[in-house]
């Protein structure tokens, strides 16, 4: 499955925006089987922790469906 690295910059319910290292933002929604809960998204956005999102393309939307979110080690901090 495809992965994308970045930081969560916006959260609404189970939808979130991931801003990648190039500064481009992408829209995601949590899959019902995702190894992450909607309640975990806001703390990730507040802490600005680097994350890796494993995803599939969404059905009939310009957006992705997150299957898994892994917190990454902060590079160079």
């Amino acid at each position: 499955m495809a992965t994308m690295d970045g930081r969560i910059t916006l959260v609404q319910e189970s939808r979130f925006q991931l801003t990648d290292e190039a500064g481009v933002s992408h829209l995601f929604t949590l899959s019902p089987w995702c190894a992450a809960e909607p309640a975990q998204l806001r703390p990730l956005a507040h802490s600005q922790a680097p994350v890796r999102v494993t995803y599939k393309a969404g059905v009939d939307v310009i957006g992705q469906v997150a299957q898994r979110i892994d917190v990454q080690a902060e590079a160079g901090r």
Binding site: F16, L27, V61, I62
Partner: peptide, 26 residues
């Protein structure tokens, strides 16, 4: 924008200037 909702029903409906089509989950 506010609700972080993705664009959906990509394409043209052929119905006047309405390419949104209908209310939906997004």
């Amino acid at each position: 924008e506010w609700n972080n909702l993705p664009a959906d029903h990509i394409g043209l409906t052929g119905q006047s200037f309405d390419n949104t089509g209908e209310l939906s989950a997004n």
